[in-house]
Amino acid sequence: MKVELTVNGKGVTADVEDRTLLVHFLRDVADLTATNIGCDTTSCGACTVLLDGESVKSCTVLAAQADGRAVTTLEGLAAESGEMHPVQRAFHEEHGLQCGYCTPGMVMAIVSLLKENPSPTEAEVRTGLEGNICRCTGYHNIVKAALAAAEASQ
């Protein structure tokens, strides 16, 4: 079936199998490979992107369900000028990533979290990230990055 999405502001149209998951549409059709797959039970959050501005796990959304809607991935987060989004910058400054595999999903989850709760407490950040697994950082600096980004955006 034909699926048409706006991804990072650009229209992407393709004829895909009905069962195509959004994450595969993004990675293999739109050729945006930053979004990663880390599990098969909607548990790890590595595939998190924004769908109409809200975080979703793209492995548990059909491309068909996202038809006609707007998706934002990590690659679309920085400004046109190349200037990093506050969350990206905070991750860099606070050493919020090591191997980088969970990072795109983690960043997008935090972008959405801060949109809904611009001044979260540490506890709210931690609970808000219960659907995002990281194995390298122990979350300490990810949480710091989220709080730093929140502060920088005030």
Binding site: T33, L74, A78, Q88, F91, H92, L97, T103, V107
Partner: peptide, 21 residues
Amino acid sequence: VIRTEDPRLLTSGGVYVDDLR
């Protein structure tokens, strides 16, 4: 010293085996 590895990983994402083109 913050990492030189980060800007690429944070903007275009890492290139893992499944990302190789």
